[in-house]
């Protein structure tokens, strides 16, 4: 084997090793814990194999945690609430992000780079700090309320913080770049001759958008939506800091089970179900992307 082959093999194997070590092994551990019972010990769960017991009884696994998830409304409500918030945040991001991406894609090259820079700029400040900043803006004694009070538009401060509104605002604000960037990438690749051609054949501007631009930007819509939906579904920081008591999302529940109740097996089961909810849309996306590349060839 010459040096090139060795190098090639190394390059191919490294990402797989990375995935194995930092994704597959932790996943296996969580999966294993989700089949255990909680105990007051360290670690706080029963082990899958107990070699101190008789050979027939050394293996112990239970589905109790999953049964409990089905039985207790709390989990169902959190999952549904998370799905709802993630879904509507994704829609809002799409509604806000599409025109932005479109405008950037059609801008002159100088402006385009400027706009892209502005889109990425917020990442230079810590995510946590930016969410805290929103608390300052939205609180009853915050910037917005003070402004509205001072110009006499309202008499009582509005409850903006700790509501679903603030959660949506936080998520849309934080994840908008993840929507705009893939949409921009798709829209910038579009041949604007196609728009001219449709207009030339008798389509008015809105029809051109519906018939040409929109269908051809579907790959960007899908990848942008997944990039927003997936992290939004498991989001913990934004609902924890900006959300009210009724904005209970699954990330918060997961956190509470782990650190509040120290029920690691139940928390693991919550995590596994969440993972399944994420894997399904990802597989749909993969399928779509494969079809897309097939078409291009």
């Amino acid at each position: 084997m010459n040096r090139d082959d060795l190098w090639r093999r190394f390059v191919i194997v490294t990402p797989y090793l990375w995935l194995l070590m930092f994704f597959l092994i932790p996943f296996g551990l969580v999966l294993k814990i989700s089949f255990a019972d909680p105990i007051v010990a360290m670690p706080p769960f029963t082990s899958l194999f107990d070699f101190n017991k008789a050979p027939g009884e050394s293996f112990y696994a239970t589905l109790d945690n999953y049964r409990f998830l089905l039985k207790d409304d709390l989990y169902r409500i959190s999952y549904l609430k998370s799905l709802k918030i993630a879904f509507f945040s994704t829609c809002l991001c799409l509604l806000v992000g599409y025109p932005i991406a479109y405008a950037i894609a059609r801008a002159s090259p100088v402006w385009r780079n400027m706009f892209l820079f502005l889109i990425i700029l917020p990442f230079w400040i810590s995510f946590l700090l930016r969410v805290y900043a929103w608390m300052g803006i939205l609180s009853t004694n915050g910037v917005i309320n003070n402004l509205l009070l001072s110009i006499g538009l309202i008499e009582q401060p509005l409850q903006l913080l700790y509501t679903d509104f603030s959660v949506y605002l936080g998520i849309v604000y934080s994840y908008l770049p993840f929507m705009v960037l893939p949409l921009y990438a798709t829209l910038a690749k579009l041949d604007f001759d196609l728009n001219d051609a449709a207009a030339d054949l008798g389509a008015k501007p809105l029809t051109v958008f519906r018939d040409v631009t929109l269908p051809l930007s579907i790959p960007g819509i899908i990848s942008g939506s997944l990039l927003v939906f997936i992290p939004a579904l498991g989001e913990f920081v934004i609902p924890a800091l900006l959300g009210g008591l009724d904005s209970l999302m699954i990330g918060r529940t997961l956190y509470d089970e782990f650190f509040g109740n120290r029920d690691w097996p139940l928390a693991s089961a919550v995590a596994i179900i969440l993972l399944l909810m994420l894997v399904v849309p990802m597989m749909v996306f993969q399928h779509y992307q494969l079809r897309e590349t097939d078409q291009r060839e």
Partner: peptide, 20 residues
């Protein structure tokens, strides 16, 4: 008169055939 109302059609250099 806007392009969509002209009795004129164009064949583009890139052909601009709708790929979808």
């Amino acid at each position: 008169v806007p392009p969509y109302e002209r009795p004129v059609n164009m064949m583009f250099q890139s052909y601009a055939v709708f790929p979808h």
